[in-house]
Design a binder for these strands. Structure first.
Lengths: 306, 306
DNA sequence: GGTTGGCATAACAATTTTGGTATGAATATG
DNA sequence: CATATTCATACCAAAATTGTTATGCCAACC
């Protein structure tokens, strides 16, 4: 185990001398490669043997040859030295913004109609950029942002956290569409009045979810009774399955609805009615006092259009 | 460049502390992981920053967070520590013979009918074994063996080198077949007498090659004149091309001949005549005083059937 | 405002490392 | 047989490393 090697005192210089010996075939030449004397190099090799518990080289005529284990170690040593080269390059590139890893959060709607298109565009000019996208509710995204697990998020101001811990730059509000399965009774003939929709089961996230709150608040404002909602879930898979297997109605962010139900031949359809349900504006959310890495800043600019 | 890191004094312990910090999120906990005090860990991180020329971590509230460059370094550090684990396993497995790399040489015949089948068999019980096979003449293989570039060879005793520098264990002699293109004049009707073969151009390796020597020696012993040989080459591609495009005859090791000309529908055929040409026995050739690695020994046993 | 937790820095002493020279052993060469 | 080449080991001295304790600074918490 590496732990054994490390406890026994393995150093990068041991790896260097083994890699150098693999290339030069002579201890004297390997010593020159490390700018040390031949006896010093010989001792390093002896140390490498004590640390690893294996013969690394043997005398052969006037010189030495690597053993099979020595060659195996030389291969790993070369890879480790290459990793260090790569580490240096990685760190330099992060400083210039040419590459890097960005972790961002997004509520559902803009994940599809803003983040993905921006990533595809970004990957054209910044092919080395890697991204993690967390899709979740604004409160959860707020927590993750404060915990340092996200660089930025497209979300709403989290309600349970002090507003001054964030910088929020508003972008757009989020429309909601009502999605049903193809062949749903409501799709037969002319669209019935809004009250008729309340006679079906609605599938949406549970109490406390912004979407649910926005839906119920709007229905009350319209003087409409609240629909039954036997299944409360934020699981998109469960939601789609429920729609496919029943006459249920699911309120979904309009970009999501368009994505899954907008195509000809889709199993789903958007009800041709607008109840005026809006979820409050989302925006670019960052932690107060934080500085985005150069690459994260560029990606954020692409996503927000600012 | 890695050289810069190494010259500035990078040590495995720097990589360990960065990897540990990435996992624990606190310098105190990372210090515990390395069994050192918190101030010692703090100093290692400061050293890592001096050596790499980049901020690796920053204060955040009561704790620290890794910067983007710190995270990049942590990823590489983790990979390097994993490489060390793998190096340890590699070396242990070589000792037990479970894995390893074997470089062996073979003259042409046994390359096809002994080495390849043995490798396929070996890979069933030793999937981790990797092999390099050098196909060449015995003299060249002898040089490579002495130079330490081969673990063992299936070859004849090289004539230009002292026999006592090798251990040779005879296995079998090598039959030679005569190969021509499909539709060759000699394939029409009954096989004509041996003298008729001498009326065609023969393609074979140049003067000094064992195959050529064996062919000419046998023809002389049979009282037959030597055939014309306008193209002397050891190139298998040239030989096959010449056969395909002309009425030339090529003497080839029988296993090779069977492989390329033995199938129905092949472009080539073996002449149904045995002139009794034999190339002297090949065998397992190793360097005097050398010890095969465990995996090389197992592979040699499979190949030789001993 | 006081307390607590976590980190950075200084100082110190003990230990280890490191590079060199000198020299002997083993092997190859002439 | 003498010489040359390469490597292994011993010894030495200088330098560096390493781990600790002590302490101060900063931010969060109560």
């Amino acid at each position: 185990m590496a732990d054994t090697f490390l406890r026994r005192g393995l150093k990068l210089r041991h790896l260097r001398i083994v890699a150098a010996l693999s290339e030069t075939g002579q201890i004297g030449s390997a010593a020159e490669a490390l700018s040390i004397s031949q006896p010093a190099a010989s001792r390093l090799l002896a140390e490498a043997e004590r640390i690893t518990g294996h013969k690394v080289h043997t005398r052969s005529g006037r010189g030495v040859v690597l053993t099979a284990q020595g060659k195996a170690l030389a291969v790993r040593a070369a890879r480790i030295l290459t990793e260090l080269d790569d580490a240096s390059r990685d760190m330099d590139e992060i400083e210039t913004g040419a590459t890097g890893h960005v972790r961002l959060g997004s509520v559902t709607g803009p994940a599809l109609d803003r983040v993905l298109p921006a990533l595809q565009s970004a990957w054209q000019s910044l092919p080395g950029v890697t991204t993690e996208v967390e899709v979740a509710a604004s409160d959860a995204l707020g927590d993750m942002l404060l915990a340092g697990r996200l660089d930025f998020a497209l979300a709403r101001q989290p309600l349970h956290l002090d507003a001054d811990r964030f910088v929020f730059r508003g972008m757009a509000d989020e429309q909601v569409s009502l999605v049903v399965r193809q062949g749903h009774p409501l799709l037969q003939g002319a669209m019935p009045p809004a009250e008729a929709l309340m006679g079906f089961d609605w599938v949406m996230p549970g109490p406390g979810a912004i979407l649910r709150t926005a839906v119920l608040t709007r229905l009350t404002a319209l003087g409409l009774p609240h629909p039954a909602s036997r299944l409360a879930t934020s699981s998109f898979l469960l939601t789609l399955t429920m729609l496919r297997q029943s006459d249920a109605i699911a309120p979904l962010a309009s970009p999501v609805a368009q994505s899954f139900a907008g195509e000809a031949g889709s199993d789903f359809a958007v009800l041709p009615i607008d109840l005026g349900i809006r979820v409050e504006p989302y925006g670019l959310l960052t932690r107060s006092g934080s500085t985005l890495t150069p690459v994260a800043a560029r990606l954020a600019a692409l996503i927000t259009g600012i």
